[in-house]
Write a protein that binds this DNA or RNA. Sequence first.
RNA 1: UCCUCAGUAGCUCAACGGUGGAGCACUCGGCUGUUAACCGAUAGGCUGUUGGUUCGAAUCCAACCUGGGGAGCCA
Length: 462
Amino acid sequence: MNVIIKKLFEDKNLYTEKTISVNGWVRTIRGSKHFGFIELNDGTYFKGVQIVYDDSLSNFQEINKLSIASAITVIGVLILTPDSKQPFEIKSAKIVVEATSNSDYPLQKKRHTLEYLRTIAHLRPRSNTFSAVFRVRSLVAYAVHKFFQERAFIYTHTPIITGSDAEGAGEMFKVTTLDLLHLPKTEDGKINYSKDFFAKDTNLTVSGQLEGEAFALAFKNIYTFGPTFRAENSNTARHAAEFWMIEPEIAFSDLNDDMKLAEDMIKYIIKYVLEHAPEEINFFNSFIDKELLERLNNILNADFSRISYTEAIDILLKSKKEFQYPIKWGADLQTEHERYITEEVYKKPVFVTDYPKEIKAFYMRLNDDKRTVAAMDLLVPGVGEIIGGSQREERYDVLVERIKDLGLDPEDYWWYLELRKYGGVKHAGFGLGFERVIMYLTGMGNIRDVIPFPRTTGSAEF
RNA sequence: UCCUCAGUAGCUCAACGGUGGAGCACUCGGCUGUUAACCGAUAGGCUGUUGGUUCGAAUCCAACCUGGGGAGCCA
C-alpha cells in the first residue's frame, strides 16, 4: 500500500506494524558499516519520515552511498518509536532507487543564508524554510477563497491586460506586439497604437478595482484574487514587480463595513493557518521570528485600533519623538511615522482613516468636511501597510469634479462613470497584498522569500 | 532612483599593507540506534570586474557589477 507521508502523520495508528511503501527524496542519510538512517521527505508534509535500513538489503552498498536528493521508494513496516525524536519510523525491507542525485547538490545539510537560497530558487522549495513558506502560501490562498465563499462573495477575474492607463496606482508594464525596432508612428511623431494588437495602448494591470466595482454593482459582494504588476523601480524588502492582490468590493456598504470586513478576513486567515499548519508556524517561531506565535495569538484576541489621519498627526506631534521627516497635516505619513504608531503606540494592527484628499486617489469618497476622503490604510507591526482601501465616490458630479481636478480626462472613465448613473449605490473595497500577509504570518522579512520565483527590479531569473 | 554596508574554497566566515586560513560540504577510510550523527585522512583559491597608489594590495583609492539593509513609491 503506497502512502503519502502526510497520511502517516495524520493517522499513524492505521499503519502501525503494517507493511507500506513510500516515495520520496533523501534529505539526509547517516550510514555506518551494517546499517543506516535516511530522512525521507515526499513534499506532502513539512516533516519527513525516518527510514531504517541494514545490510539485509540486497542493495545495501548502493543505498549506503546515496547522495542527498536521491529519489527512492521504500517498502517496509511502520514502527512506533515513542522514545525517540520522531514518533515513528519505517524499517525497510526493500529500497528501490528511482533517481540518483549528485555530490555537488547545492543544498547542504546545514544552515544556508536566505540570500544564497534565492540564487537557487529552483531548489530552495526543498529546504525546510521554503517548504514551510510555500505550504503556508498555499493554505492562505485557500483560506482567502474559503472566507469569501462562505460569505457569498463572487470570485471575479478582472483583466490582466488593461486598456486603461489611468488607474493611478503606479508605473505600468507595457503590453505590445509591435516591432520595437520599427515602431509605427503617427503624423505628429508619436507611436501609432492603432497598429498594435489591441489597436490601443495597453498595459499589465496594477489593480482590478475599477472592474471590480462594476461587478460589485451587479453581484453586491465580490472579490478578485490575482496577479498584479507594478513597474516601479522599487528596491525594498516589501515590493515586487509581480505580486498577488486580493481586492474585495462591497455594495450597500461604507468605510466602517469595509474595515470590519478587512479585520474579519485577517483574523480568519490567521486562525486558519494556526489550525492547519502548526508544524510550519512552530518552525517559523523557532528559527525565523521568536515572537511570531505570541503576536499572531494576540491579534486574534484584540480589536484592531481605528484612528483618523488627523488623530494620527496629533499623536505624532505629541510624541515628542525625533522624526527624520516633519509632521504636518496634509503630508503623507512616512514609514517611520507608520511604524511608530503601529509598533510603539498601539503594538497591534491599526486602521488609519480619512486622509487629506490631495494625497489619495480620485475615486475615494469625499467626506463632508471637503478636505478629507473616506480612505483607510491598515498598518501592522513589522510589515507596514498591508491593506489600502476606501469607500468609493458614488456621486456622479463629485466624481467628475475630482477627475478633472487631478487633470484626468472624464472621457477615459466613461464606463466607470456610467456605473454611477445606473443604481450606483454607496460601495467600498480594499486591496490586500497577498505576499505581505504571508510575510506577516511567517515572520519572513523579505517579499522575495515568500514568492516562488520572485520578479523584482533587475531580476527575472528562473 | 538616493543613502549605507558587503563581495575571500561549493556554503558560512577569518586574515585588514609583507608567503591566504577554519568549520561544514565533497572524495576516501572507520564506526551496531543515528537524527545539522560521530572519528580520521585527502583535495579544494588569478580574494566580484577594471584601473590606480605602493618595493609589495584580499587589505588603501576610483569606477562598474552583484547582493544585503534603509528611504521614496505602494500592496
